[in-house]
Simulated assay, not measured.
Amino acid sequence: MRTLCSSTLIGEALLIMFAGLVAMKLTDVGTGTIWAVSGVAILLCVLLCGAITRPGAVWVGWALQLGVLASGLVLPTMYAFGVVFGALWWCSVHYGRKIDEFKAQRAAAEQAAPAAA
């Protein structure tokens, strides 16, 4: 799960950075405000990559997805990107957990095999 979620979060950090650049030119929101909000979101994405296996980190990721979706209030294109990254986040969490379960089952089977022989 860590690899899939981290990949999604890094992609999202890049999206937020580029969206901040676009928002500076296309909106009346102040540059300082845009970079304060974008900077916190980017930092959260990067920090969450390292903490994704800790309890509650997935829920923080969901909150981040809602924040990206809500940024559509400032830059309407972000509604579409929020939906796309929300779907990517769901896939990363869902399939990442399945992969982790499969790896755990395989490791248990490999440990049991030498003991049986």
Rank of each mutant, 00 (worst) to 15 (best):
S6H: 02
L43A: 11
M1G: 05
Q105E: 11
L9H: 03
Y79Q: 03
T3M: 13
I16F: 04
G20I: 00
A113C: 12
G50V: 06
L66V: 14
R97E: 10
G20Y: 07
L75D: 01
E12W: 03
T53H: 01
G50F: 15
R106N: 12
G39C: 06
L4P: 02
I34E: 07
L26G: 12
I99N: 08
V68H: 05
S71T: 07
A116Y: 09
S6A: 12
K103A: 13
T8V: 15
P76M: 02
A107C: 04
G82M: 02
P76S: 06
G11K: 06
G32H: 03
G11T: 04
G39R: 08
T33V: 09
A109F: 09
A117T: 10
W89G: 01
Y79I: 08
T3S: 15
V84D: 04
V60H: 02
C5T: 12
L4I: 04
S7E: 10
G11W: 08
W35Y: 12
S7M: 13
A23Q: 02
M1F: 04
Q111N: 14
F18Y: 13
F18N: 08
V60R: 06
C91F: 14
V37Y: 05
I52R: 10
I52F: 13
R106T: 13
C91M: 14
L73E: 14
T27A: 03
G20L: 00
C45M: 03
E101N: 01
L44N: 01
V58H: 06
T31Y: 13
A23V: 07
Q111M: 14
G39F: 10
S92T: 00
S38F: 00
A19G: 09
H94L: 08
T33I: 14
R54E: 10
V68F: 10
W35T: 11
L47W: 06
A108V: 09
L15G: 01
V83I: 15
A109S: 03
T8E: 12
D100S: 07
G39I: 00
G56A: 02
I52W: 03
A117F: 14
W62T: 08
A104Y: 07
R54F: 05
A107V: 03
G86C: 03
V29Y: 04
